[in-house]
Design a binder for these strands. Sequence first.
DNA 1: AACGATTTTGTAATCGATTACATACAAAAA
DNA 2: TTTTTGTATGTAATCGATTACAAAATCGTT
Lengths: 365, 365
Amino acid sequence: MARSVPRIQDVAHIAGVSTATVSRALNKPESVSEQTRAIVIEAVEKTGYRFNQTARNLRRRKTGAIVVLVPDLGNPFFSQILSGIEKTLSKSGFSVLIADTKQPDFGHDRILEYIRYNRADGLIVLDGSLPPGTYDEASTGRSNTPIVFACEWSDGVPLPTIRIDNRAGALMAIAHLHDLGHTKIGHIAGPSENILTKERLAGTQIAVSQLGLEFPDKWSFPGNFSIESGSRAAKAWLDLDDRPTGVFCASDQMALGFISELSNHGYLVPDDVSVIGFDDIEIAGRFIPPLTTIRQPRSDIGTVTAKTLLMQISGECHDIQPPLEVLPVELIIRRSTGPVKTEARGQKQHSGSIDPEISTRRTAL
Amino acid sequence: MARSVPRIQDVAHIAGVSTATVSRALNKPESVSEQTRAIVIEAVEKTGYRFNQTARNLRRRKTGAIVVLVPDLGNPFFSQILSGIEKTLSKSGFSVLIADTKQPDFGHDRILEYIRYNRADGLIVLDGSLPPGTYDEASTGRSNTPIVFACEWSDGVPLPTIRIDNRAGALMAIAHLHDLGHTKIGHIAGPSENILTKERLAGTQIAVSQLGLEFPDKWSFPGNFSIESGSRAAKAWLDLDDRPTGVFCASDQMALGFISELSNHGYLVPDDVSVIGFDDIEIAGRFIPPLTTIRQPRSDIGTVTAKTLLMQISGECHDIQPPLEVLPVELIIRRSTGPVKTEARGQKQHSGSIDPEISTRRTAL
DNA sequence: AACGATTTTGTAATCGATTACATACAAAAA
DNA sequence: TTTTTGTATGTAATCGATTACAAAATCGTT
């Protein structure tokens, strides 16, 4: 046991061939005679040799790593997309490196580091809020580190993007509320500069105006996708004289925060207000009431993104236009939305002879 | 613009010194005269030079990467710990590599790869369910890749571990239920081989027997930490003739699934049964009702783990015993637990003249 | 000025693989 | 038999930094 980790030289020595032959036997088996190949394989097995990734990377001028820029690691929505990415990339032998862009010490120039100095073989960006100039080198081809956007993107930056149709999602949400008879519809938005916020708000506005509904500013609540901001929106809703009877939230987390805060004030969903979310995070279907929402195919987003990046890296993609993949969304109807009530809140709606407590329980589900 | 990325040679050439001097000026500034240092710095700035991580790693026989083995990336509990790890390690210049051990294609020998072939400078294991033999080389010092356990661990494996006091957490949970008058206490457990399951179950049994309570098998429900398994436990609870009035769940997710399923069947928490969880994931405080739970300091676990690993890597840690850090847990009382009711379920409990519907709403909060 | 001690700098080996190029050898064609 | 072609293998350069060792420059002392 002279050395702890065997090198290609050790294998070559045992097999009685040169290092070049060992390398070829392992990387391009057809370029080596069947005999020597067998001898080499045997020597590899005897020594337990594994190639040194670092040395290979240096020689090949690759890093073997893909960096994923996540806006918020703590958010369950992203962690599941990440899971899909990791699965696909690790299968292709890449390491997945994660950086949280909302960490206080994340400098935006770290991206430039990755792009400019070849610190990664590719980049997946889940955060559209980075300054657009960041991508100049990548989009003009001056950098050879491919970048793919997923979920979010940066307007006007011509890079491959995997996303869903956010406007269509908003349209579906508003249409659903309208089908239930709601004419006074509110919206809780994400962070104002966010591209998803803009798209979902735009979709809402289009839908609302097509349906000929009013949509005053006071029915549009600010938020930032977080649970807490949903709960703040609830307080704003409570302060209103003329309240929307249906509220479309730009994220499930805000929807849950909204419902939760209303519940703290003795209001019930969907009795007092119908609420629809966006994302379909795991807990949505198990909330009380189960949340009606627009589902995003999270795992698919992850795998499609990873595959797109792999194609970019291998150079298989010869399109002139950077690929744009728009995955479908789906309306999941659960119990946080219901027919609009005409009565003012506080009036009871007992139906005949049913025990009032049980009745309330039913509606509370 | 001859080369896209400047090398140390380019800097050396411009500064009129050797590559060795440039390297020293950057890595050991005190070993170089003030003059040359200034010249080198200037040349570095002029060229925009950044060292090539791969080349450095090859020479230093390091990889610059830490691998984190996560049992389930989609679980919000882990993603927040991960966030703490990433923050600390990236500050020290390490890349964080993530592997999902529950991915179908995750071979357990991948860990051996990391340990044996120096594919990473260190390993953080959040999954205690890997075969104990895996760590032989690491714990006997035959491998020089340090490993640190966090949250979970492998019994009898003498490696540094950062965790909470699971038994104490269980004790606090049971004591809380007992304080509220509950004498019939049930438990929803995690996956049976899991070390946390065992500890929390053991804590429950100790507490229950110290308090002189009965704890029949049928009050111990199987689970696997997931929302779904909590909901299955709810069905089992419903099937019981003699039901526990307080249930301690080994994870928040199971608690939420449990409450959700009960709600689907018209049962209310804490009216019909008090429920306490474990973890304090973000949504817990916003569930309906807000979940009483045992809080784990997730972010702390992440940072302490990362720091411990860094010490192991730098060799600063000269303890004979591998360090064991037990972080404190905290009982967070919210509204999913309440005083035990003596009445049988289904009897109304209207208090005087209050509108019954409003009354129910209150208790439903 | 001469000496040794100390600081600063340069030369070249090294980390461990990949691969361009050269060479050896066998089979096919002349 | 000689020449050509093609396949299989070896030699050595290379990727880009770090660092052991040697050489040179600087300093203080006598």
